[in-house]
Every structure is written in C-alpha cells, then in structure tokens.
Design a protein around this nucleic acid. Structure first.
Lengths: 260, 260
DNA sequence: TCACATTTGTCCGTATGTATC
DNA sequence: AGATACATACGGACAAATGTG
C-alpha cells in the first residue's frame, strides 16, 4: 500500500566525493566540453588533479560507467573514454526490471501487442525510404537463415525494432528494445522450430507490403494477428517468465550470504 | 547500418571480480532469495565471505546501487539493503538521455501522450474498486498540497502511475514509471507555478469521473486533452531541455581535465 | 549529554594482470 | 621479447556518520 508512493525522486544527499566527481564529469559532457570518443586522464592522474584518492576516483568511474557515460579499457593506451551508452544502459536496466518484478509471460506478450500496435500506428507518419530499405534487408537476412535451416529469431525481433526506430522517436525505440530484449530471452529458452520463424517472416512480408501501400489499418491488423499468433505459440510452452529466464545460477553466494 | 542492431545485450566480458559479485547478488534477488528490505552483510564481512578485498566489494556495491538493486546507509545499523529502485534508476537515466540530447523533450512528451492514451484504453478492462480508491485518495492529497499553496507535481504524476498500475500489467507500470520519472525530472527544473498543478487536478477529477461512469471514449479524450495541455505548458518554457536543465556549473573540473 | 560500537567513506602503498608499442 | 602505461586488486589505516546505552 505505502509501496504505491511514486518512484521518481531520490533525495539529493550526495555528500560522497565520488558522486560529486561523477556529477562534474557528467556536466562537462552535457555542456559539450567532453564528447564521445574523448579520453579522460588515467585514474592516478585524475586522483592527482582532483586531489582525491584513487579508490574514490575508481568509484566515480564506476558510477559513470554504470550510467553509460564512459567505458573503461585496461592496458597500454587504455583508460576511461567518453561513451554514449546511456540508451543501452536503459535497455538492460529495463530487462532487469522485468526480471526483478517477475513479470508473467502473459503480461509481457499482452503489453507487447498493445505497444507494437501503437507503434505501427506511428510508423506511417514517420517512416522513410531508408527505413523501408532496412525492413527489406532484414527480411532477406531472415530468409537466408531459413534457407540454411536455422532459426531467424533475432532477425525477426530486429524487424520489430526497426519499426520502432522508424517512428523517429527514441522513447519508442528504447521501450521496444527493452520489451523485445525480454522476449528474446524468453524465446531463447524455447525448443527450436524453424517453422515458427518461417510463419513470422510471412507476416513480416505482408506487413511491409501494407506499409509500402500506405494501408495503415491493414498493417495494424496484420501486426495484431502476427503477434496474437506468436503469443499462442508461446503459451503452448508453459511457465512464467520468471521461471524461464532465470539463468541457472548454482548459487555459490547463496550459502555464504545466508549463513548468518 | 550495423548500428541499427538492437541494444539489448552487452557482451559478457566481465572478468572483473566486482562485476561477478554484483551479478551473483542480482541472481539471488531474481531468484527471490534476497528480497527488498533484506540487509546484506557489511563490506568487511562480504569481503571475508567472498575472499576479496574490501575495495572490490565496494565497487560491486556501486554497481548494484547504480542499477537500483541496493541502497547503502552509513553508520551504526547501516550497510547495504536490498531495494527496488530499478524503475527510478531507469527514470533518471531517461533524464540523462534527455540532457545528452539523445531524446528531445518533444519526443518524450509525444511518446508519453501515445503511451498514456493506450493505457487509458486498458484501464477500463482491469481497474477495480481499490484502484478507484487510490485515485480518489491521490486527488485528495494533491488538493491538500494546493490548499497549502504548494505544487502537487509528484502527486499529479502519481495519478498517472496509479492508472498504469491499474492495468494489472507490470510492463505498463514499468514503462510508465520510467517515462514519468523523466517527466518528473524535467518538471522539477521548471519555475514553480501552482496554477499548473491546479489545472492538472481538474482534469484528473474529470478523468476519474469518466472512469467511474465507464465512459471509455470520454476518458481517453480527456486524457489526451490533459496531456496536450501539459505539453503546451512545457513548450512555453523556451528552448530545449538541454539548455534549461544545465546547472550553472562553474567548471572547476573543466580547467583541470583540459590542461593537458 | 556523553561515550561507544558499527559501518561507510577515504586515503596510501604495493603488487599483479593486461594491452600496446 | 621487453618496456611501458594502464586498470584491477590487496591490506591496513584513519575519518566521518549514525544509532545505542
């Protein structure tokens, strides 16, 4: 009940030095002083400049890394580099959230249908030639997989991601990426059946055709049918996502942490 | 081209010990062995159990903290506690993405309208008495804020979150939580104007009324109007978010990092 | 109010692994 | 192969915060 209080804000109690350092670097990035590809000084050098210990600097770098602002390479010529991974971090956190909340397969597929239906509606006002080309190439790639008797799961998911990207709205792209990531994880735990991939490709071709012909209602309808069919396929393999997705950790830590 | 491939997974090159520790703890959380509220052992104790240095443990804790899985408190009785802040982390990363100019305010608000419109459609088939009660309570809380001449921003955002939760679909709740988190971050950087909160509450009351009367089309229409109005309000504060949000950093780090 | 214990935050010095030249 | 530069990791120490008696 009290758990329904909104999420949203974390109090600004950053009196930890490494948080402040991370914040300063972020500000420099937002200002454009530091751009993706730029290299930050090494840990020891940063420690010298900020007059802080290396441990503190390291934790600041962890913060920046986990927020998608830098990557770190070791070895000669390595060190922290400004990156642009915020979106992919959002995607992977989203996937974590799915697992954390133990979302059911039912919920996931239902939400996917609604979301992709909505996106299909958006695509028509924004897709360009390049987007259509991407879709065509994707279908070719998928067909090639089938031709060599392989599943085309990731190619087929990519079809939907391309559609989301075609809305020209990153928010849709992020949300879809996250949901499809979860779907991919589910599907990777399913028995392989090439005919499933084949069915999907047929739908993708029909959807693409509808897009080319600017038949919006048809495209939306086809998408709906496509996803409903896919949903039914998934339902035949029983179980919750929370059970499906769990990597079979052998629980080394389990005993330790709980021995108390 | 190759950059269009979906986000989703980061390569598993985690040869760093702290990444592995973080992963192990995450798995325990996913499995349900560790639940929000549970306390982890102290840093020194963890170091002992995992047979690692305290520094390594600390970095693992940073990873977990930045992913929203734990919070850390200092002092007696403090230490790491399992938390459920993944959504708020996603929200703040969304906000980072906005400032990084990866997402425009336009994109965010447009996406929000489409998503909430969709959710409004779902609410009718799933909301129960409890949900309606939550909405009523929320409006009361918001009104109380206004009564004492305060903004009701977070209360008003919560209204929308409650709607998303009412769909009984966690995916919608998560997506909405992330988007609203970003909206909240945006709004917190806007000049305070109680009349804005007031306007929103009026709409919320009308929407709630429509829900009670099972007038689906009306509710959707009201939601759309409400959000369009809110969007216009945001657009009046001129410029891009990236300009608005900059905290006037005095650039202490700037000179240092660039002196090379 | 005053110690006191616990735990994070921060520092230093040192050693090891790793990638590049 | 060897030297260099860097991140990774260890151990020990002290400061600062926070709750208890």
């Amino acid at each position: 009940m009290s758990d329904n209080t909104p999420i949203i804000f974390s109090p600004i109690k950053s009196r930890r030095s490494f948080d402040e350092i991370a914040l300063e670097v972020k500000e420099l990035i937002f200002k454009g002083v530091l751009k993706p590809g730029d290299k930050l000084p090494s840990e020891t050098e940063l420690a010298r400049q900020f007059k802080l210990g290396r441990q503190t600097i390291r934790e600041a770098l962890r913060v920046l890394e986990l927020s998608g602002f830098i990557t770190v390479q070791k070895g000669y010529g390595g060190g922290p580099t400004i990156a642009d991974n915020v979106l992919s971090r959002i995607g992977s956190l989203f996937f974590d959230a799915l697992r954390f909340d133990k979302i059911s397969l039912e919920e996931l597929t239902v939400a996917r249908i609604k979301i992709e239906r909505m996106i299909m509606g958006e695509v028509f006002s924004s897709i360009d030639e390049k987007g259509i080309l991407l879709l065509e190439n994707n279908i070719e790639k998928a067909k090639h997989q089938i031709a060599i008797k392989k599943m085309a799961t990731s190619e087929n998911l990519e079809f939907h991601q391309i559609l989301a990207v075609s809305t020209q709205n990153q928010v849709f792209a992020i949300v879809t990426g996250a949901v499809l990531g979860a779907m991919g994880a589910v599907m990777s735990n399913l028995p392989k059946d090439v005919s499933v991939s084949k069915q999907a490709i047929v739908f993708h071709e029909r959807i693409l055709k509808a897009i080319k012909q600017k038949k919006k209602r048809l495209a939306i309808k086809l998408m709906q049918m496509h996803l409903e069919q896919s949903k039914e396929g998934l339902e035949k393999s029983p179980g919750k996502l929370s059970e499906k997705v769990q990597s079979s950790g052998r629980g080394a830590a389990e005993d330790l942490l709980l021995e108390e």
